Structures are given as C-alpha cells and as structure tokens.
Simulated scan of single mutants.
Amino acid sequence: MKLNRQTAERAAGEGRAAFAAGAQQADCPYDADGDAEQQFQHRYWSHAYGAAAEAAPSTGR
C-alpha cells in the first residue's frame, strides 16, 4: 500500500465512521507502534476520530 493522500483520506473516513458508529478511539484498527504503513494510517484515523468527537454536540456527561 502506498502512503499517499488516498490512503490518508480512506483512514480518515474510517475514523469518522467509527466515531459515528459509537466505537472508542482505542478501537483503532491500526498500530501506532507498527510499521510505517500502520503508523501512517493510525495517525489519520485517530486525527479524524478526534475531530469528529470535538465537532459532535456535547451529551452533558
């Protein structure tokens, strides 16, 4: 797999979808300590998940 914009956008989309589905950020399917490909995808998945969480309306918890 190439580490390019398409890969980053796909991982980001997965992160946003995971948040919308109610997954926890710890459920990221990519390894932050893995090889370069895993780290790259983890970075974009986590960033998008965090951005979706910040943009979501507060539940008051």
Rank of each mutant, 00 (worst) to 15 (best):
R5M: 15
F40S: 02
L3V: 10
T7F: 03
T7S: 13
R16Y: 06
A17T: 05
R16T: 11
A12Y: 03
A56N: 00
P29T: 04
R61T: 09
N4E: 13
Q24L: 10
A21E: 09
T7K: 05
Y49N: 02
L3R: 11
H47I: 11
L3F: 08
P57A: 15
R5T: 15
G15S: 03
A8F: 09
G22D: 04
A12F: 00
F40L: 04
R43K: 13
A12P: 01
K2S: 15
A36Y: 07
T59I: 11
A51L: 10
G22I: 08
A55V: 05
W45N: 00
A20N: 14
S58W: 11
N4K: 11
A11F: 02
Q39P: 08
A23T: 14
F40V: 00
E9L: 09
E14P: 04
D31L: 07
H47Q: 14
A26W: 05
D35C: 08
S46T: 12
Y30G: 06
K2L: 13
Q25E: 14
R10V: 12
D35P: 03
A32H: 05
R16M: 11
A17N: 08
G50I: 07
A55R: 03
G60R: 06
R43L: 14
W45A: 01
F40C: 00
P29K: 06
E54S: 08
T59P: 13
A17L: 04
E54R: 15
Q6F: 14
Y44G: 01
S46P: 12
F19W: 06
G60K: 04
C28R: 01
S58G: 15
T7D: 05
A17C: 02
